[in-house]
């Protein structure tokens, strides 16, 4: 590839049709990267370590010239930066951050603090929300699986590759609703106490996923109460749906006209 062309690879979850509704939540979740940085002068490991320590936590970051968002100064959270390995001016970093943190900028900023500059050579994303390198597939593997399915009627390969969209709900608290509450939610109604079968602990204002007893994703919403109070409640609103995933009328209507 050309000069000044950092190689960027790694986890890229792609949602198909209905799953695009859930992809927004994957985008908004935490990321992990392994990044190769070149420092433009000879420096000691300890100096760099202390500089990277400064970059942990809440940082100000202006997106780079070529970026997909507006270039406005914004704050981003860097959870941790670890030096995995180094050799002369090259440093291999493992970074965990909130979404929308530009790694290229982070390396550049580290160089500015250092005084002589630094840049990113290669970047690999190792995690995006619930998706890690554990079940990653290459474009070639996908192409082969599609070929096997279309031409050899063997769908086993493709089945191994496709991840049911419900797995994207991992990492957020979930609520199971009974069969009769599902269609009301599909039409946009809130989840009330009587429809709830089971729940995982959540706080007021959390993003909560709603699933059926079969495990299908119904909707994603925002809780209006704390789950601790749920045990003593007999009625009342619990979750307000923000994004409905299930289609209407798959489950029976339980309300009167």
């Amino acid at each position: 590839m050309g000069w000044g062309y950092p190689k960027v690879t790694g986890v890229l979850p792609i949602g198909i049709e209905n799953a695009t509704k859930l992809i927004t939540y994957v985008t908004k979740s935490g990321k992990e990267y392994v990044c190769l940085m070149r420092v433009h002068c000879n420096t000691s490991m300890d100096t760099l370590k202390s500089i990277l320590k400064e970059l942990e936590g809440e940082i100000y970051q202006r997106p780079p010239v070529r970026s997909s968002v507006k270039r406005r100064l914004r704050t981003r959270k860097v959870n941790s930066i670890d030096i995995l390995d180094y050799s002369e001016k090259l440093y291999l970093l493992k970074i965990s951050s909130s979404p929308g943190t530009y790694m290229r900028k982070l390396c550049h900023d580290a160089g500015i603090i250092l005084g002589c500059g630094a840049h990113m050579i290669e970047l690999r994303r190792t995690r995006s929300g619930a998706f890690s390198e554990k079940n990653i597939v290459t474009m070639q593997e996908l192409a082969e699986a599609i070929y096997m399915w279309r031409n050899c009627r063997d769908e086993s390969e493709l089945r191994n590759i496709l991840i049911p969209m419900e797995y994207a709900l991992c990492g957020m608290p979930k609520v199971i609703v009974d069969d009769f509450a599902v269609n009301s939610v599909a039409y946009g109604a809130s989840i009330n106490v009587p429809g709830i079968v089971a729940y995982q602990e959540f706080k007021k204002g959390d993003t909560v996923a709603i699933i059926t007893l079969k495990g299908e994703a119904v909707a994603i919403g925002e809780s209006v109460i704390n789950s601790a109070t749920l045990n003593n409640m007999e009625k009342g609103e619990v979750i307000r749906p923000k994004r409905v995933i299930i289609s209407k009328d798959i489950y029976p209507k339980a309300w009167k006209k």
């Binding site: 590839m1 960027v8 790694g10 979850p13 198909i16 390198e133 597939v137 474009m139």
Partner: peptide
């Protein structure tokens, strides 16, 4: 399979380029 395709996520290893 057809329903699965329209309800699933593929975790692609993005190639450089």
């Amino acid at each position: 399979l057809n329903t699965l395709i329209t309800n699933s996520i593929i975790n692609i290893d993005k190639p450089p380029g």
